[in-house]
């Protein structure tokens, strides 16, 4: 049951600097913890995040074990044209999630 929360302004003026907020549900298990019986809990994290704006990659981040559960990633971009933002999270154990949001630029 992975789910994402995306916050992209629905409308913007051309040239505006807009903030994009993303929240992805993930446990981000570090791989450094042990169970009560001493066994290592295997690492299970998101390793990369990327955002494309009308097909062009505008933001990318690598994630590491020290990042908290349910990573919240925000960044800024310039509104250039109406269209679509596509988000992609990739992680351990074949984790792969996508989400998208549209914007109207006037």
């Amino acid at each position: 049951m992975a789910s994402a929360l995306i916050n992209v302004p629905a409308k913007a003026k051309r040239g505006d600097i807009i903030e994009i907020k993303t929240l992805m549900s993930h446990i981000m298990e570090t791989g450094f913890r042990h169970t009560a019986t001493g066994e290592v809990i295997p690492r299970d994290i998101i390793t990369s995040f990327a955002c494309r704006y009308n097909g062009t990659e505008i933001f990318r981040a690598d994630l590491f074990p020290a990042i908290a559960a349910n990573p919240f990633i925000t960044f800024f971009t310039t509104a250039t044209a109406s269209g679509k933002f596509e988000f992609e999270w990739i992680g351990d154990n074949g984790f792969s999630e996508t989400a998208s949001a549209s914007i109207t630029v006037e």
């Binding site: 049951m1 789910s3 929360l5 916050n7 907020k21 929240l23 549900s25 349910n70 919240f72």
Partner: peptide, 17 residues
């Protein structure tokens, strides 16, 4: 206060499903 920054909303989304 921001529903897109509040991780609790991830559970709310699952609950809605």
């Amino acid at each position: 206060d921001d529903d897109t920054a509040n991780p609790g909303m991830l559970w709310v989304l699952d609950g809605e499903k």
